[in-house]
């Protein structure tokens, strides 16, 4: 059965490694739902967080293929229930269309969103959450006219302790 798996890949900081990682996925016709890279808790060690929809049999093989790369120290996979994850979304909307009544206050309270910037002609709202949550806010704002919308890749930490020892 296909479902979303989060791959966490710990590696050296190599220019070409992203290419190697994505080609392992694309060669097997797997779409990357989201991808993120940053430094990890250990200095000099990078962490890629990649979400793919696939079967468990396939993701097991993927992890071994990823670990086989010279620059990769460790690769693990987890289901959503084994991770705590977030995505961030930014919304740019016209100040005029949204500033009537108490709409802004309702919006911020109900959605746990923040206003990052207010200009005379537009404002920027930020919301952090799961995809469904940022999507819900987008749907809510759509009637007022969303000038720009962007959602980040997933960042995720894993719940089980001890799995990442030795990195």
């Amino acid at each position: 059965m296909e479902q979303a798996y989060t791959l966490s890949i710990f590696s050296e900081n190599s220019v070409g490694l992203l290419n190697r990682i994505t080609s392992i996925l694309t060669r097997r016709h797997l779409n990357i739902d989201s991808i993120n890279s940053s430094e990890s808790e250990s200095s000099g060690i990078y962490r890629f967080t990649i979400v793919v929809k696939t079967t468990e049999a396939q993701v097991k093989k993927l992890v071994l293929q990823l670990e086989k790369q010279v620059e990769v120290m460790k690769a693990v996979y987890h289901t959503d229930s084994d991770t705590v994850f977030q995505e961030i979304a930014l919304y740019k909307i016209s100040t005029k269309s949204i500033s009537e009544g108490n709409l802004v206050e309702k919006l911020i309270r109900d959605n746990n969103a923040r206003i990052l910037s207010v200009e005379s002609d537009f404002m920027i709202i930020e919301k952090t959450g799961h995809k469904e949550e940022t999507q819900e806010l987008l749907d809510f704002l759509s009637p007022y006219g969303v000038l720009e919308f962007v959602r980040s890749g997933r960042v995720s930490v894993i719940k089980p302790m001890g799995e990442l020892e030795g990195i």
Binding site: G16, N19, R20, S23, R27, V70, E71
Partner: peptide, 13 residues
Amino acid sequence: IISISMPATKWNY
């Protein structure tokens, strides 16, 4: 050639 050879090499630089 680095990108071209990537999937066919054990390592390249």
